[in-house]
């Protein structure tokens, strides 16, 4: 009986020892933030009020290609001229800068949420020279 108990303990200890396995945790590689493509307006707020349905925003396009951006069918926006853009970090981006040709750079927080499987890009801005009114364009990729 004594030996059976010892044998049982030994088997249990063996099982316990073999059950332990050092798990190798590998850091998840954060995806590069890719904004390339053509973006259209999904929603517009002015001072927090939704004005999307009060104006025809459908023709406006923001196109990111390579390091360049272009504006089509312009509207009041963060910048008014085409130029280059860059993220502060391609993987862990906190801000995006628009550098219009011949103008000064505008940097905004990089708000790039995944909504229902689709990326959205949020662009907050005020009108140059008249900063009382706050706008936020929520863009979606075509």
């Amino acid at each position: 009986m004594f030996y059976k108990v010892n044998l049982l303990c030994a088997v249990l200890l063996l099982m316990l020892w073999t059950s332990c396995k050092v798990e190798k945790l590998e850091p998840v590689n954060e995806a590069v933030k890719d904004v390339s493509g053509t973006w259209s307006i999904l929603k517009v707020t002015r001072n927090g009020a939704d004005i999307t349905n009060t104006y025809d925003f459908s023709k406006f396009k923001l196109v990111f290609e390579g390091n360049n951006y272009t504006l089509e069918n312009k509207l009041p926006f963060l910048v008014s001229d085409n130029g280059t853009f860059n993220l502060d970090d391609n993987q862990y981006a906190f801000s995006i800068s628009f550098n219009p040709a011949g103008g000064s750079a505008k940097t905004i927080p990089f708000n790039f949420p995944n909504v229902n499987g689709n990326r959205q890009l949020s662009v907050p801005f005020t009108i140059v020279g008249c900063s009382n009114t706050n706008y936020v364009y929520t863009l979606q990729r075509n």
Binding site: R46, T54, P76, V128, G129, C130, N132, Y135
Partner: peptide, 12 residues
């Protein structure tokens, strides 16, 4: 709205 705005604002 806005009650005071520039010509580049979207005025409702």
């Amino acid at each position: 709205s806005p009650a005071k705005g520039s010509s580049n604002d979207l005025v409702s």
